[in-house]
Design a protein around this nucleic acid. Structure first.
Lengths: 138, 138
DNA sequence: TCTTTGCATGTTACTTTGTTGCAATACAGT
DNA sequence: ACTGTATTGCAACAAAGTAACATGCAAAGA
């Protein structure tokens, strides 16, 4: 996934700061989602913990990143597809959470639609598979 | 869902204590899943916070309760169907998380199966719909 | 009956995750 | 380069979850 941080920020009316660029670079670099704690570790004192939270939140709101929770409820972040906007996240693909390496992958599979019972109005469906990923399965 | 706490404990080789019975009663009473913080509030100092964590964990391990995370990553608990065991959780139904009242309902809908990509071995799939529930939709 | 054993609980303290308020700083437009 | 505003960093806090240890209690054995 090729990403141009400067453009991405401009498109979403966000100021260009070195912290914001670094966060995008770091997340775009990886093929799997990265957890908040992992990001915190990687940045050390390059970026303040609170700033990181704020950047991640604003990116999620704007539709730049999407947030996936792992089994423990820890937040993981991955780059959204270019079709995502602040209004609608098109991240309705299935996620895969490896129970060995703990990584979360975005699969290229659309979440199957489900018929809701009478009275329930679903706006989004979230689907995560747990198991052993390609790298760990060798 | 009718539950007999005493039997349930005996079936799973767990000692019968008043705290354990109370936890089961409280969770069985509700038609929706209950969050850990909510349980903590309800019990006040009737049950110690740490004891509550331990009871919830052991119930999950034994297949008595299943744990569902809400959007914030907060743990919610609901009674498992009687077919659940410590080995296999048969809680593979779709969950519904209301974005208004925050409640999590277990829907009587089986999670649709998804074909994994080459190399990925899924053992369970988790599916949660977000939207407006029957009670809030009036 | 008395003692031993083992599980369950309670208490305290700690770690991790996330939030809030405010002062200092960096950025974008002129 | 100047200036208003958004962003950052800092400190303090709050909530969620865990670890270590002591106490309590009930069943089994002497």
């Amino acid at each position: 996934m090729k990403i141009n941080p400067a453009n991405l920020l401009k498109e979403h009316d966000l100021k260009h700061t070195k912290q914001r660029v670094r966060v995008l670079e770091e997340i775009a670099m990886d093929n799997a989602a990265i957890s908040q704690p992992e990001l915190e570790k990687r940045f050390g004192n390059e970026i303040d913990r609170v700033t990181l939270y704020r950047i991640l939140n604003i990116y999620e709101e704007k539709g730049i990143l999407h947030r996936v929770l792992d089994r423990n409820g820890t937040a993981n972040y991955a780059i959204c597809s270019p079709s995502c906007t602040a209004e609608v996240h098109h991240d309705e693909h299935v996620h895969f959470n490896c129970t060995i390496c703990q990584k979360i992958y975005c699969l290229n599979i659309v979440v199957p639609s489900v018929k809701m019972p009478e009275g329930y109005l679903a706006s989004t469906i979230n689907s995560t598979a747990y198991g052993i990923c390609k790298s760990c399965n060798k």
